[in-house]
Design a protein around this nucleic acid. Structure first.
Length: 580
RNA sequence: CGGGGCGUAGCGCAGCCUGGUUUAGCGCGCUUGCCUUGGGAGCAAGAGGUCGGUGGUUCAAAUCCACUCGCCCCGACCA
């Protein structure tokens, strides 16, 4: 492709509304154009990268036995009402009416649609298993779209759904997809990590996220520095820590703590360390209040609480509810005499000589002995956030390290959540009707491109990994006033085309500075430049975007050298950089 | 959804507080010419705006007021 014939324009200035590098560079390199909040046009250069990512995904999905189809994006309300998500999904579901006044929505995900197809088409155990996928535009009316393609409202996604006769077979496919995703992201040249994840609103019991490691990532990951355990901080299990027993009197005593509400204030006022304090946090789960205890130096983890209670809706109690439950102002809630179910984190087990709220204004209790004094505890559970530096609960040797990541893919074992609700049943060999066991598997395609830029860039621009670069070679002529330079450039362009190399030929009559700056900005992996200087040295200058040094390649060796270099670059990025 | 901010040329911004000498300006980009050619050159001449929208106040509104739409940031939320 000649730049003079291409749709391509770069910008010197960093857009003021772009906070993250990938967003800034995509705008500056003219790869995206914003139409509305979280809604972008993929310009030709970026579309080439998108198509490459899709190509890798298709190849690997097909190789793994999945079958591609394409479902509609405009979806009638009926199936959503049937699954219960028409009311449950909330404002993220963009709804509208057709001319007859019938309700429709734009598809944010397709469990309902595929389950409807499955129940019509897959009647027998002989039809199973099946794994169906599509690559399609999704729409979610995000409250706050941001960071360019990282969190848009309209975005491209590969979503796959599998149907099985047994739990074992669904789990086999789950791990098959796990391996497939590892291959996909490795082939994209990304450094990533598969981590245990919370299932959120989509439900199910087993899930992994594929996180591209980048400091700008929105997700926090804890990973063991010794073994292979890694999890989203929402999920990361906590190693049980013994609390040393402390001498205490036979009974706890009230102590005045005027206006001291926070852990920090109470600790300073009473001169105790936070690990001797017990926080009492009140939640309302499906309309019913519960209390949760966690040691003062830890934070409660709402995802874990939600998983423990198996509830649909969970929220912190508001100020009025806290006053109603504790009969005290906010800040003095405590577990003794509370009269509602109490769940405690392991971190308070065996704690003695502790400080808790007294359910009485400006008062705490000290010398509390958990097992002796707090009668209403339903049990001890892992309901807190793990912290970096803590012992790994799996190997008990390493410690947690903190990473930031961009979630580019997630896989779920769903069980019968949708099939049961929507009567997606098959006839088993024993003649019994049974609900299909399901899994689902997603990859954010635009986000993968953005994550690649987050991971591979420098101060001058993007450094595309070869497998997903828009072009393989960036050819330029420096000094177009020289006939020889132009002639050589044209020759090389034709040569590269004949070798089936994907080449972008910068044939503009621009000064060298402009050519170099643009080449660095758009980040094509191999740069080939012809100039009087290079011709004097008997060839062309060849430079990798990811390296500083360049070399002169003689014209007669050009074809062989460039082909070798291209294949080396593919290997460099696809050689299993990923960490599992 | 709570809090804050911003809408002026394709992009980035000034002007607004204190209404009228501003014919609405600057930088980048764009067009034409000259010049220059290894890291976003220089000179000259140009094109490009219903100042987000609607209504109001006023002799007079980019500027003041009200409403409205859009966008951005922090937080909450988020298969």
């Amino acid at each position: 492709m000649r730049i003079s014939k291409y749709m391509f324009h770069t910008y010197k200035e960093i857009p003021s509304d772009a906070q993250v590098v990938s967003h800034q560079l995509m705008v500056r390199s003219g790869m995206i154009k914003k139409l509305s909040a979280g809604i972008y046009t993929y310009m030709p250069m970026l579309l080439r990268t998108i198509r490459k990512i899709e190509g890798i995904i298709r190849e690997e999905m097909n190789k793994s036995g999945a079958i591609e189809l394409l479902m509609p994006m405009v979806l009638p309300a009926e199936l959503w009402i049937e699954s219960g998500r028409w009311s449950y999904y909330g404002a993220e579901l963009l709804r509208f009416k057709d001319r007859k006044g019938a309700d429709f929505c734009l598809g944010p995900t397709h469990e309902e649609i595929i389950t409807d197809i499955a129940r019509q088409e897959l009647k027998s155990y002989k039809d199973l298993p099946k794994n169906l996928y599509q690559i399609q535009t999704k729409f979610r009316d995000e409250a706050r779209p941001r960071f360019g393609l990282m969190r848009g409202r309209e975005f491209l996604m590969k979503d796959a759904y599998s149907f099985h006769t047994t739990e074992e077979d669904a789990k086999r496919e789950y791990w098959n997809m796990y391996e497939t995703y590892v291959r996909i992201f490795k082939r994209c040249g990304l450094k990533f990590r598969a981590v245990s994840a919370a299932t959120g609103n989509i439900g199910g019991t087993l899930s992994h996220e594929f996180q591209v490691l980048a400091d700008s990532g929105e997700d926090e990951i804890l990973a063991c520095n010794q073994c292979d355990y890694a999890a989203n901080v929402e999920m990361a299990a906590c190693h049980f820590v013994e609390n040393p027993s402390v001498e205490s009197s036979n009974k706890y005593t009230e102590v005045e703590t005027p206006n001291k509400r926070t852990v920090e204030e109470v600790c300073r006022f009473l001169d105790v360390i936070p690990s001797r304090l017990i926080k009492t946090i009140l939640y309302i789960a499906d309309g019913k209040p519960y209390a949760f205890l966690v040691r003062g130096d830890f934070d409660i983890n709402e995802s874990k609480v939600k998983a423990l209670l198996k509830c649909d809706e969970l929220r912190l109690a508001n100020d009025k509810e806290i006053v109603d439950i504790t009969k005290a102002p906010v800040g003095f809630a405590g577990p003794i005499g509370l009269g509602i179910d109490i769940f405690a984190d392991y971190s308070v087990k065996g704690l003695s000589g502790a400080v808790v709220g007294a359910n009485k204004a400006d008062t705490h209790l000290k010398g509390v002995n958990v097992e002796r004094d707090i009668k209403d505890i339903k049990g001890f559970y892992d309901i807190r956030f793990a912290k970096p530096g803590e012992i790994c609960p799996q190997c008990r040797k390493g410690i947690y390290e903190r990473f930031r990541g961009i979630e580019v893919g997630q896989i779920f074992y769903l069980g019968t959540k949708y099939s049961a609700r929507m009567n997606a049943e098959f006839l088993d060999r024993d003649g019994q009707k049974k609900p299909m066991i399901m899994g689902c598997y997603g990859i954010g395609i635009g986000r993968t491109a953005a994550a690649a830029i987050e991971q591979y860039h420098d101060k001058d621009g993007i450094i595309w990994p070869m497998p997903i670069a828009p072009f393989e070679v960036h050819l330029m002529c420096i000094g177009t006033d020289s006939e020889e330079v132009v002639r050589r450039g044209e020759e090389l362009y034709k040569k590269l085309l004949s070798l089936n190399v994907e080449v972008l030929f910068d044939d503009r009559d621009e000064r060298p500075g402009v050519l170099f700056k643009d080449a660095d900005l758009i980040g094509i992996p191999i740069r080939v430049s012809v100039s009087k200087k290079s011709i004097e040295k008997g060839g062309v200058e060849v430079k990798l975007r990811r390296e500083k040094a360049s070399q002169i390649v003689p014209f007669e060796r050009f074809a062989d050298d460039i082909k070798r270099l291209i294949s080396e670059e593919y290997k460099y990025y696809s050689g299993g950089e990923g960490v599992q």
